[in-house]
Design a protein around this nucleic acid. Structure first.
Lengths: 228, 228
DNA sequence: GCAAAAGTGTTGGAGATACACCCATGA
DNA sequence: TCATGGGTGTATCTCCAACACTTTTGC
């Protein structure tokens, strides 16, 4: 038994634990991720990072992620799910920091809200044009994106990226954007309606010089169901 | 901004981090989980717990889980995957301990090895007859079982629970045990062979008074592939 | 020869895919 | 009237599920 092993089993070592959140939203040109300037520096001197912060002394991990999001982006009640825990011993230069990564999904009105009151410290980036990120945050984004893609196939997660009332074309765009492939309109509509988890609101959305689109509502807002 | 939030964002609080591992193996009567007596007490005075321990100061999380397993069960090179991180602030009575849970899969010869040299501190339990477990370890087992079940459907994870040379009936029993349902023999064989990830070794296993079974080998031992 | 598990094909149905035209609107 | 996206149905194919009998061995 070597010294390291000995240490591990006998001494409950103390480490810092943070949560970092990959916030996804649908922008005009595709999937976007919310980034912030990482303190203590600020402005163009600070690296871009995922929203995140240290876990408080009596705070549940999930709450930590929620609070962090609320604090740094002003948003609460978003869909949030634990992703993976990153613990390379040298991932943080100064001290041992283990981070529990989450991902969050924001509907377009929230994306717009953040865009509406822009700050130099927080902004959306298209996922394929991310700047260099703090520490291993790029790795975290990559994993989150994979997870999102996978979940699309066997859950109703996509409804978290769409407004309360949405058109089927809008929803289809979410699928196409995340899967990076175009889908057949008729088959898509059949498949979604067969899930029996949305209903026609009777309302129409009129925009542009073409036929107005029927607006649907997701039957269980905030909840994600597993399919098949 | 309340005091708690303030604390979280400004003071990098120190916490203990442990890894706990749900080790699955195929026993004679179904799926089993490896448990140990939790120190500092021992013998029948100590609660049953998952194998686990504190993460060392410069230890990668994955390594911590590996080392812990090697130390407490004598096994290394088993299939190991991160499951979920549990962080209820009151999950540990004495101090704040966040645990990164893993699950591991051991082939039958290893299950037998452990059974062969029994200790009062470590033993296998059928998953449906677990004793009361330390802290929230029961919750961890439940989640691990769900994950295993789900992965069976879209990966080649089951091959980690079978010896290097195995019969198709043996493999089928793994699927049936984990899914809790019986499968059609012909359809099962067709499906597995269609994966094109096993090959006939040419060997046969003779046991009992019936036709010997062909032995197969998994083409990429130790690796798990995703299907479809 | 009998008990016990190994091994083997075919058919029908459900669900996915491919595909093209008309509709309602604003300009 | 034209450009734009909204909306609809059918034929085919692929994959999965259901199903029963023969083979090889030990006793």
């Amino acid at each position: 038994m070597n010294t390291l092993t000995e240490l591990r089993s006998t001494a409950p070592w103390l480490v810092h634990v943070s949560t970092d959140i990959v916030v996804f939203g649908m922008g005009n040109d595709g999937l976007e991720v919310l980034l912030r300037r990482h303190p203590p520096r600020s402005g163009s001197d600070a690296p871009w990072a995922l929203p995140g912060g240290y876990v408080g002394p009596v705070e549940h991990l999930d709450r930590s992620a929620e609070h962090t999001l609320a604090q740094q982006t002003g948003m609460n009640d978003v869909y949030l799910e634990q992703l993976y825990t990153f613990g390379r011993p040298d991932r943080h230069p100064a001290s041992r920091v283990i981070t529990v990564a989450y991902y969050a999904l924001m509907p377009p009105q929230r994306v717009a809200e953040i865009n509406a009151r822009p700050t130099p410290e927080v902004r959306w980036y298209p996922i394929d044009q991310l700047p260099d990120l703090y520490l291993d945050h790029t790795e975290i984004v990559v994993l989150a994106r994979q997870r999102l893609q996978a979940k699309l196939a066997y859950s109703t997660i996509a409804f978290q990226l769409v407004p309360g009332e949405f058109t089927l074309s809008e929803l289809q765009r979410v699928y196409e954007t995340i899967l990076c492939e175009s889908l057949d309109k008729r088959n898509f509509r059949k498949r979604i309606l067969a899930l029996d988890c949305i209903e026609d609101t009777g309302n129409k959305r009129r925009e542009g010089s073409h036929r107005p689109a029927a607006l649907y509502r997701y039957k269980s807002p905030g909840k994600v169901h597993y399919i098949k």
